[in-house]
């Protein structure tokens, strides 16, 4: 919901904000416009989460998914560089031969999955032929002290990689701190296995986040990038104000906090507040759609711009009656 500005309903797959951006502005250079690190959110109970793809904008605008762990000492984007026996000439020849296989093209005209397959080969080819694109992912070019500063965790190194990618032309990077809540220490502090304990959150999860997030903001600032890079830390709901019998906190969609900054956002302020219990908003409630409108506005896009939805029905990025959070600009 937070990644599209809309709740998933009626079977309609709205696009991730990053994919909408990529759709509207296209790639900058050889790198994909929207990158997802390190992997999509997977099992969290119920269905696989929606809102991580380009939805009705079409698979060509799906994020480029890393599918590797940047904190792995052997980290590299799998198969990004051609082997030594595939020269540039040879790679080109293969592409041209592959493109020449088209007598069956009519069978795939109505198949979006097939279009996607070809798009992927084009994108793969562009990526592997571009030194700039490959270098963007070469995390080992970053100095070790800086890598330490972010923390040698999956999240920490993903944040560093994100900064590196933004620096080299990627327009939008989504970093998933976790891919599942089962059998892993995460923010899902229900208090008993396979979920997480409150003490583990305070001991492991929060410090991990703090270190990486602070490093990211500092790093962006030092490079003069913070002025035109928005950074958002968000989740899909909060936790119950009351501790449950297992000693944890359950899901609570009543109220929660997100953190925004960078780019045109005026930082150093608090918008809205919850009641004393932390149960629901007391003043200035903010909806997910408003957050989406804020992001689009911050990117210089009209939040009510219409995109072709399913069957070409025009759908605005954000519903017409929703405005960006004006207190932030």
């Amino acid at each position: 919901m937070m990644q599209t500005g809309r709740l998933f309903q009626g079977g309609i797959e709205h696009p991730h904000i990053g994919s909408a951006l990529g759709y509207l502005r296209g790639p900058r250079g050889d790198v994909p416009p929207h990158v997802l690190l390190p992997r999509p959110i997977g099992r969290t109970g119920g269905n696989l989460p929606h809102g991580q793809t380009a939805g009705y904008l079409g698979k060509p605008h799906d994020p480029f998914v890393l599918n590797a762990d940047p904190s792995d000492p052997q980290f590299k984007v799998p198969d990004l560089a051609p082997p030594d026996y595939i020269s540039t000439v040879r790679a080109e020849r293969r592409q041209r031969l592959r493109d020449a296989v088209d007598a069956g093209v009519r069978k795939f005209e109505a198949s979006s999955a097939a279009q996607q397959m070809d798009e992927n080969f084009s994108l793969a080819y562009r990526l592997m032929s571009s030194t700039a694109a490959r270098q963007a992912f070469e995390l080992d070019q970053e100095p070790a002290p800086l890598r330490d500063r972010y923390g040698r965790t999956r999240f920490g190194q993903s944040c560093l990689l994100a900064r590196r990618l933004i620096e080299r032309g990627v327009r939008f990077v989504t970093i998933n701190m976790f891919e599942t809540v089962f059998d892993e220490i995460t923010w899902d502090i229900h208090g008993s296995r396979p979920f997480t304990d409150i003490s583990e959150m305070s001991r492991l999860v929060a410090p991990n986040f703090d270190q990486a997030y602070a490093a990211l903001l500092e790093d962006l600032q030092q490079r003069g990038m913070l002025a035109n890079t928005m950074v958002l830390a968000m989740g899909e709901f909060g936790r119950t104000p009351k501790i449950n019998p297992a000693g944890g906190r359950d899901h609570h969609p009543g109220v929660w906090t997100i953190v925004l900054g960078g780019g045109p956002i005026r930082g150093g302020r608090i918008i809205g507040e919850s009641d004393e219990q932390g149960a629901y908003p007391k003043t200035r409630p903010v909806s997910p759609a408003e957050v989406a409108a804020t992001i689009y506005h911050g990117l210089g896009l009209d939040p009510h711009l219409e995109l072709p939805g399913p069957q070409n029905r025009p759908i605005p990025l954000v519903d017409y009656n929703v405005q960006p959070i004006k207190e932030l600009f």
């Binding site: 698979k59 998914v65 799998p78 198969d79 990004l80 790679a91 999955a113 996607q116 793969a124 592997m128």
Partner: peptide, 14 residues
Amino acid sequence: QEASVRQALHLSNG
């Protein structure tokens, strides 16, 4: 069953 860039890369360079 989705197509992905990772697959295309693997077939090309893997």
